[in-house]
Every structure is written in C-alpha cells, then in structure tokens.
Design a protein around this nucleic acid. Structure first.
Lengths: 196, 196
DNA sequence: GACAGTCTTCCTACTGGAAGGTAGATAAAC
DNA sequence: GTTTATCTACCTTCCAGTAGGAAGACTGTC
C-alpha cells in the first residue's frame, strides 16, 4: 500500500501544475502522460474521464487548503496576523513560482465552460474561503484587532477579491512583487491605528 | 464599402463572447462559424490563424476601452466620479450579463499558455488600464477629491485588482450583485471624509 | 455602355494531427 | 484467482489550417 496511490498522486500533481498555467482546456491527457512517464490509457485507469480527474483534483485542493488553514489557525491566533500569513503565503508561492496561481481562481474564470461537476467543486472552494475569511474578520471585529469599514462578510469578500486580482496582475505584468505591493495597503487599512 | 467589414466584425464579436465564457482554448472556429452563419474556411479568409483573430480582437478591445475612457473623461471631471462610473459600468455589464467578464482579465489568467503575440496585447491592455487609473488617482490626490493611503500607482493597481477579483467572485458565486458589494467599500475608502 | 480582368468573399472538400476515450492483453501483487 | 496497473492498438470526433473554385462586385479600357 506504500506507493499504491503514488501514480494517481503524480497524475493529480502534474495536472494541477498544468491547470495552473493554462486552465481546464489548456492541458490534455497526453501532456500528463509525458510528465508522469506513463501512457495516456493508464491515466484513464485512475481517472476514467477528464471531468473525474479535475473534480478529484479540486476536491483535493480544497481539502489541502482546509488542512493548511487549520494548521495556520493552530499556530496563529491574532486575526490580523492570520490575514498577513495568508497573504504572504501566496506572495511566496508566486515569487518562487512554485504555485504561481490559484487553481480555483483560474477555473472560476472559465466557470461557464466547465463540466458541471467541476464547476460545483470550484464554487464550494469559494464558499469555503469566504466562510473562513468571514470568521477571521468577525473575530477581528470582536476583539478589536482589525479595523473594519464594512460588515465582516463584505470585508472578507473584498479581501479575497484583492488576493485574486493581485494574483492576476502579478501574472499579467510578469512581476511577482506586484502581488505584495497590492496587498500591502489592503492589510494596512485593516490594521488598527494604535498598532501602526 | 458600407458592410464590407460586417462579417469580420461579426466574427470578432462572436469570438469575444465565446472567449468571455471559456477563454482562449474554450472556443473553436467551428463555434464561431455556427454563430455567424458562415463556414469555418471563410473565417480563415478574414483571420488566417486563431492567433491573428484573437490578437486583433484584443487590440480592438483595448481601442474600444480607450475610446470609452476618453468619452467618459469628457463627461466626467471629478476623479472619484470617474472611478464610480468605471465600477458601475462593470456592475451593469455583469448584472445584465451583456459582458459578464473582462476579456483581458480572462486571457491574463491563461497568459503562460497563450501565443506570444496575444500575450503581448493582453499585457498592453493591463498597462493601459493601469496608466489611466494611476492618472485618475494622481489627479484625485492633487485636488483632494480622493483620499489615498498609498502612492497613486499602488492605489491604481489595488483598485484594478479589486475590480478583477470582484468580477471573479461574481462569476464564482453566480451572483452578479457581489461585484457592487465588493466595490462599495473600496470606493467608500477613497471618498474624502468631508464628502461622506 | 459593354467587355475583360481583378479582387473580395464565401464555398466544398480535404489534410494531418490532437483530443478524449475504449478494448483487450499482459504481468505482477495480493 | 481475482484485482490492480500498465501496456499496445485503435476509435471517433474535433481541431486549425489548406487547396481550389464559384459568384458577385469593382475597375479600367475601348
């Protein structure tokens, strides 16, 4: 059982990287086969259809995100610090080019053209991220560690939009630093005056 | 000469709509042919390759945007009002589903997988939008009609990121109103205290 | 004003390759 | 001896793109 799931993991990993660069229609089974070193047909053994593959990948992506957030919450308590950690996590992923774009952000942009099963999982990712960020904003409002100018839910949506938009700009300009540059004033604005 | 360019315009218009829903690899010449009512081969007469077609489309898209902005600048002088007009233009496009997504935002997300000629034009669009927004922020800073918490250029990038991110969220949730909800606090923050 | 030649636009018919996916065999693992 | 993972070989459909021709519109010449 030790490496029983290794091949399917490799398939998912390479598919994730390929989606991150070109979206759902930007890769094929042949591309994955070339990376993993197996034949196209073997991929169909693990994932009967492309829809299965990408749906599984998005589910896994969300589970990884949930685990990452849970781990972060264990280490960091302060709401502002949580938002900063989240932003700098992405800043690092973009700057070292390891994960230059959010899989679900890219898929969401193509949402109307996606198989319904995949679209549903992408929407679920957005709901998860929104729920978490809203809870962070809520805690920040209650303990005064965040300065909100709107309801927590609206602040959460605005924050997520900034992250996704900043990601897009970093890609468009080809300058990863733009991400951090854009996020800085957003985080600054959420910081209580006393802590500045 | 009256309708000499009509077919090529129809091709560009339908291609734009198709790109807006599924990106560069989300449509084919066959799709356009079905919409316009001509054969695939006829499209190649107007646009020899798909790269030509999409490059032309993006150039046109930017020219249209430039003309739209120029028209807006003639009608509206106040920087804050300009930003509000820009935001509500998109809010309307998204809500009436006429232009549910920015062509260049979608293409930018697939940037690494795009033909270089197309990628270059997409980048040019981002530079144009950024330059214009920076000039608006600059004027707002100088005449005091905007409250900036960073340099004009950074504010401009942050504003553009919010617009693109809000667009994405509206699409992901399937709720167009989210766009305006996210932009509201952004515009609020830029409004001078005296004018609130 | 008629004719000839050219240009524009669109057509049918086709090509080579890539797409997602299937059938069925093989061989090792449990 | 069944299950798992992989293979070769193949299928169908779709893709971008090409060749070559038909029909009409435009243009220059007599």
């Amino acid at each position: 059982m030790s490496n029983l799931s290794t091949t399917s993991d490799e398939i998912l990993t390479s598919a994730r990287a390929l989606i991150m660069t070109g979206g759902y229609n930007g890769f094929s089974y042949a591309d994955i086969a070339a990376v993993v070193g197996i034949r196209k047909a073997s991929i169909h053994h693990h994932f009967p259809s492309k829809t299965d593959l990408v749906r599984t990948l998005v589910v896994r992506y969300r589970e990884d995100a949930e685990a990452g957030i849970a781990g972060l919450e264990r280490q960091v308590r302060d709401p502002l610090a949580l938002l900063k950690a989240y932003a700098s996590h992405w800043a690092q992923c973009i700057e070292d080019a390891s994960r230059p774009f959010c899989v679900c952000a890219l898929l969401a942009s193509e949402l109307p053209a996606l198989p319904p099963e995949v679209a549903a999982e992408v929407k679920a990712f957005f709901r998860f991220a929104s729920t978490w960020l809203t809870s962070v904003m809520d805690r920040g409002l209650k303990d005064g560690s965040l300065t909100l100018s709107s309801e927590p839910r609206v602040e959460a949506e605005a924050f997520m939009a900034s992250v996704h938009g900043a990601m897009l700009s970093a890609r468009a300009y080809g300058t990863p630093e733009v991400f951090a540059t854009i996020l800085a004033p957003t985080l600054q604005r959420l910081t209580p005056t006393a802590a500045r």
